[in-house]
Amino acid sequence: MNILAIDTAASLCAACVYDAGAGAEKGRAVLDLGKGHAEHIMAVIGEVLEKASLSYAAIDAIAVSIGPGSFTGVRVGVSAARGLALALKISAVGVTTLEAIAAETREAFPGRPVLCAIGRADSLAMMQFDAAGQCVGGPRLASPDDLVQIAKEHASVLAGDAAERVSQMAAGGFDIGPRATTADIRFYARIAAERPATGEKPKPLYLRPPDARPQTVFALPLNGR
């Protein structure tokens, strides 16, 4: 089973083809863009298929990062995944950035609870996993103080770009996994490979409203009103 994984939720525009049966990657392409994912995502996917020596028809399912992450980036990835799934008549599976980061962390720290947190604001996006890898909290927003308490109570391995901040607030002493806003692309594919197809379309996961707001101060009245 060939799974095409797509991640545009953070600064990376990444894709890979993963052979679920063999548990191996067939090809990958990763660009660190920051912005402009929409202009590059299809070229990145095309490059991955070329490296894997596969056509679109050989793809059996699509995995896509649904966030939390960049408001625009998440929408680009989800739209691409849903469009390809519709055209190819295959399933698309949404995977959160937090669970993908946690899965990458468990590879380095097997059998350990993981607390994943990303963000730079006073409220951080978090997900908590027990030693068996089951989600026991989140995805939700939490204050750094709350995360310090959770980490201490469960002796968690910390992961995500807020991991260092939480560890410092807790006076250190924690093992730390990937300090990033997203995981290596293969973990999105691996998680999707373990999930049964439900037919449900992936949707963006937003834990906070977008920064952009419609302007009302300079709105002009309609003619005749």
Rank of each mutant, 00 (worst) to 15 (best):
residue 135 C to W: 00
residue 68 P to A: 05
residue 121 A to P: 02
residue 58 A to F: 00
residue 95 V to S: 04
residue 135 C to S: 15
residue 38 A to T: 13
residue 104 E to M: 03
residue 93 V to I: 15
residue 122 D to H: 12
residue 94 G to A: 05
residue 110 P to G: 08
residue 119 G to T: 09
residue 124 L to Y: 11
residue 106 R to N: 01
residue 58 A to C: 04
residue 119 G to V: 08
residue 58 A to W: 01
residue 53 S to Q: 15
residue 69 G to K: 09
residue 140 R to M: 14
residue 68 P to R: 06
residue 128 Q to I: 10
residue 40 H to E: 14
residue 76 V to A: 11
residue 66 I to D: 06
residue 114 V to E: 01
residue 65 S to F: 00
residue 115 L to G: 10
residue 46 G to W: 10
residue 148 V to G: 04
residue 120 R to V: 10
residue 34 G to F: 11
residue 75 R to G: 05
residue 96 T to I: 05
residue 128 Q to H: 14
residue 132 A to W: 02
residue 43 A to H: 14
residue 109 F to G: 08
residue 72 T to L: 03
residue 127 M to A: 15
residue 114 V to R: 01
residue 42 M to D: 10
residue 48 V to F: 11
residue 84 L to V: 06
residue 148 V to Q: 09
residue 117 A to P: 13
residue 69 G to I: 09
residue 58 A to Q: 14
residue 64 V to A: 05
residue 110 P to Q: 07
residue 105 T to N: 00
residue 69 G to M: 08
residue 139 P to G: 10
residue 130 D to E: 07
residue 139 P to C: 12
residue 132 A to F: 08
residue 73 G to Q: 03
residue 60 D to P: 00
residue 45 I to Q: 12
residue 50 E to F: 13
residue 127 M to D: 13
residue 139 P to V: 10
residue 131 A to D: 11
residue 35 K to R: 15
residue 118 I to R: 11
residue 58 A to L: 03
residue 99 E to D: 11
residue 94 G to I: 04
residue 70 S to T: 12
residue 108 A to M: 13
residue 124 L to I: 05
residue 103 A to W: 01
residue 119 G to S: 12
residue 98 L to E: 03
residue 139 P to N: 13
residue 60 D to Y: 02
residue 118 I to Y: 12
residue 106 R to F: 02
residue 68 P to L: 04
residue 62 I to G: 01
residue 101 I to G: 06
residue 85 A to P: 02
residue 151 A to P: 07
residue 38 A to R: 11
residue 115 L to D: 04
residue 78 V to Q: 08
residue 34 G to T: 15
residue 56 Y to Q: 08
residue 40 H to K: 15
residue 64 V to M: 05
residue 68 P to H: 06
residue 87 A to N: 03
residue 43 A to N: 14
residue 133 G to F: 11
residue 149 Q to C: 07
residue 55 S to M: 12
residue 69 G to T: 09
residue 122 D to K: 13
residue 36 G to V: 06
residue 133 G to A: 09
residue 88 L to H: 07
residue 121 A to Q: 13
residue 66 I to G: 05
residue 133 G to P: 11
residue 142 A to M: 11
residue 104 E to P: 00
residue 65 S to G: 15
residue 91 S to Y: 01
residue 90 I to Q: 07
residue 146 D to G: 01
residue 107 E to F: 04
residue 54 L to S: 08
residue 150 I to P: 00
residue 37 H to W: 10
residue 98 L to H: 08
residue 105 T to C: 01
residue 76 V to H: 09
residue 122 D to N: 14
residue 91 S to T: 14
residue 132 A to P: 00
residue 69 G to Y: 03
residue 48 V to D: 09
residue 81 A to R: 06
residue 79 S to Y: 05
residue 37 H to A: 07
residue 88 L to N: 06
residue 136 V to R: 13
residue 48 V to T: 14
residue 47 E to P: 02
residue 58 A to V: 00
residue 78 V to S: 10
residue 136 V to C: 14
residue 49 L to F: 11
residue 146 D to K: 10
residue 43 A to S: 15
